[in-house]
Computed example of a mutant assay.
Amino acid sequence: MITKKEQLTALVITYNEIGYIEKCIESVSFADEIIVVDSFSTDGTYEFLKSHPKVKVIQNPFENFTAQKSFALKQATNDWVLFLDADEIVSGSLQNEIIQTVSSDTEISAFWFYRQFMFKNEKLNFSGWQTDKNYRLFRKSKASFSDCKIVHETLDVDGTSGILKEKLTHYCYKNYEDYKSKMLKYGQLKAIESFYKEKKFSYVMMVLKTSWKFFNHYILRLGILDGKKGFIVCHLNSLGVLERYKELKKLEQKNELAYYLVMP
Rank of each mutant, 00 (worst) to 15 (best):
I2C: 06
I2H: 12
T3A: 09
T3N: 11
K4E: 07
K4F: 04
K4C: 12
K5W: 00
K5Q: 11
E6Y: 12
Q7D: 06
T9N: 06
A10N: 03
L11K: 04
T14C: 06
Y15K: 15
I18V: 14
Y20C: 07
I21V: 12
K23W: 08
K23D: 15
K23P: 01
K23V: 02
C24S: 08
I25S: 05
I25Q: 04
I25Y: 07
E26T: 08
F30G: 11
F30N: 08
T42L: 08
T45F: 03
K50N: 11
I58K: 02
N64E: 00
T66G: 13
Q68C: 06
S70L: 06
F71G: 01
F71T: 09
T77D: 10
L82C: 05
D85A: 01
I89L: 09
I89C: 04
I89F: 09
I89D: 05
S93L: 10
I98Q: 02
I99H: 06
I99Q: 12
T101L: 05
V102H: 01
S103F: 00
S104R: 07
A110H: 04
Y114D: 14
Q116M: 12
M118R: 14
E122L: 07
L124F: 08
F126K: 13
Q130K: 14
Q130D: 14
T131M: 08
K133E: 10
K133C: 12
K140E: 06
S141K: 01
S141C: 06
C148A: 14
C148L: 14
K149D: 15
I150L: 12
V151T: 11
V151F: 07
E153K: 02
T154P: 00
D156E: 15
V157W: 05
D158K: 10
D158G: 01
I163Q: 10
I163N: 09
K167L: 12
H170I: 00
H170D: 06
H170P: 07
N175D: 15
Y176R: 09
Y179Q: 03
K180W: 03
K182V: 03
M183T: 14
L184F: 10
L184G: 07
K185Y: 06
K185P: 02
G187R: 01
A191F: 07
I192E: 13
K197F: 07
E198F: 12
E198R: 08
S202T: 11
M205P: 00
M206R: 13
K209M: 12
F214N: 09
F215G: 15
Y218E: 12
L220D: 00
L220W: 10
R221M: 12
G223W: 01
G227T: 05
F231R: 00
C234Y: 09
L236F: 04
L239N: 09
V241S: 09
R244M: 15
E247V: 11
L248K: 03
L251C: 11
Q253L: 14
N255E: 15
E256L: 13
Y259P: 01
P264E: 03
